[in-house]
């Protein structure tokens, strides 16, 4: 099990006073109210917090899906605060892997082709079969989403996310739609990727049990970081139950 010290101290993400305000007509919602944060290379971070605490908003901004209202943020040395649409698309294509709560597989493509969707446009991807093998689905490659269980679909989604060898893996409630047993399988997959490839991984959850597998746990409250905890002794995903 990787120790905290194993992490390189390379700063992958840095934010400075990041704010995000949603204008919903009559009320203004401050989803992020000034976040200063650094995420390090090869680190597995769990972002914990109740609904509306700002964790998803932060992840969206880091993943290049949304823009901050104020503050600045960097991916490695590159500032992305004011990046154009085209630059953000490029950034997502080259560096970021996403895992969603609801898998978001393309129903008209089978498992292999869903992965291929990404490998076709990535710079130095692994083979789709290799990615599916990593998530333990080499025997289900020709199945379509409608022919797979939720856990399997989520693992295809992870394979799709990692197949391009992303620098960062951003997971929004990856086990939210799964039962405990299937959920741990998915977490184990994520942990394995993190261990083997050193992919910087951020996992959003409001399931506190998952914090036990993280290097660091960042707790959110009202759009701010409440506190950051470092795990001296991490559990393997398979040891986690809820």
């Amino acid at each position: 099990m990787a120790r905290l010290d194993d992490r390189t101290r390379e700063v992958v993400f840095r934010t400075e006073g990041l704010t995000k305000t949603y204008d919903t007509g009559e009320v203004q919602v401050h989803a992020l109210a000034g976040v200063d944060l650094e995420l390090y290379g090869s680190e597995l971070t769990v972002l914990l917090g109740p609904s509306g605490s700002g964790k998803s908003t932060l992840l969206n901004i880091l993943g290049g899906l949304d823009r901050p209202s104020g503050g600045r943020f960097w991916f490695r040395e590159k500032e992305l605060t004011n990046a154009s649409d085209r630059q953000l698309t490029r950034y997502r294509r080259d560096h970021v892997g996403f895992v969603f709560q609801f898998y978001n597989l393309v129903p008209s493509l089978n498992a292999r082709e869903n992965v291929q969707l990404v490998t076709d446009v990535a710079k130095r991807p692994m083979k789709p079969a290799e990615a599916l093998d990593l998530v333990g689905l080499s025997h289900r490659m020709d199945h379509f989403p409608a022919q797979m269980s939720g856990g399997e679909q989520q693992r295809v989604a992870i394979a799709r996310a990692i197949a391009k060898r992303p620098d960062v893996l951003l997971c929004d409630e990856p086990t939210g739609a799964l039962d405990s047993h299937t959920g741990t399988q998915v977490l184990a997959t994520l942990q394995r990727i993190n261990d083997e490839f050193g992919t910087t991984t951020a996992v959003i959850t409001h399931n506190a049990a998952i914090r036990l597998m993280a290097h660091r746990v960042i707790r959110f409250q009202d759009g701010r970081i409440d506190r950051i905890e470092e795990n001296d002794s991490r559990l393997a995903a398979t040891e986690i139950h809820w």
């Binding site: 993943g63 899906l65 085209r86 698309t89 490029r90 997502r92 294509r93 080259d94 970021v96 996403f98 969603f100 978001n104 393309v106 969707l117 990404v118 446009v121 990535a122 799709r160």
Partner: peptide
Amino acid sequence: CLRILGFG
């Protein structure tokens, strides 16, 4: 979803 995955 494809846009998120980096498709233009």
